[in-house]
């Protein structure tokens, strides 16, 4: 049976009518049409589906859409200001922290939450902050460098 509710994603309210068992990832991608958030493992292991709920990172593959009502959801599409990338996105591109790009939206969301909580994280805090996100291309070093640069004000 469908549940009718609203989700607030990137400051926009979306009225929805979906089954209560639907996961947040599927609803964001197919009902709302924001496809920046990726489905990797669909099993809470890889972090490609990471979104922010009230500023905190959540694996959207394993979170019920209906449970996110009344919360502020942020996806990767919510980071840029119009055509202007935010500093973290720009730093990730400039240091070469993006290869195939599949993990990138999830990395950006975990790093955004980390930087909101720690304005000067240690390298170990960065590693822990990104520990729920797998990348099979970069070896992580340049992603960590991009977070470091952003924290340093670049």
């Amino acid at each position: 049976m469908s549940e009718s509710f609203q989700l607030r994603v990137n400051d926009v309210e979306y009225p929805l009518s979906v089954d209560q068992g639907r996961n947040l990832l599927g609803v964001i991608r197919t009902e709302i049409g924001l496809t920046g958030t990726k489905e990797g493992c669909d099993d809470c292991e890889c972090g490609a589906c990471m979104v922010l709920i009230d500023g905190q990172p959540v694996n959207s593959c394993s979170y019920l859409a209906v449970q996110a009502q009344g919360r502020e959801i942020t996806t990767v599409e919510g980071l840029a200001e119009g055509d202007e990338l935010d500093r973290l996105q720009r730093n990730l591109l400039e240091v070469g922290g993006v290869q195939c790009g599949f993990c990138t939206p999830g990395m950006l969301m975990s790093a955004t939450a980390l930087l909101a909580e720690h304005d000067d994280p240690s390298d170990d805090e960065i590693r822990i902050g990104l520990s729920g996100n797998l990348c099979r291309c970069t070896g992580y070093a340049r992603i960590i460098e991009a977070v470091r640069r952003t924290a340093d004000g670049a």
């Binding site: 209560q20 068992g21 996961n23 669909d42 099993d43 809470c44 593959c61 394993s62 979170y63 019920l64 449970q67 009344g70």
Partner: peptide, 28 residues
């Protein structure tokens, strides 16, 4: 009851146990 759903929802998606028909969310 469902709190964060990190066991319940993951378990349902893996087919270990279906999601209960009636849920009450504890997180608020």
């Amino acid at each position: 009851p469902i709190a964060g759903g990190t066991d319940l929802v993951v378990g349902a998606r893996q087919g270990k146990a279906p999601l209960p028909a009636d849920l009450v969310a504890l997180d608020r």
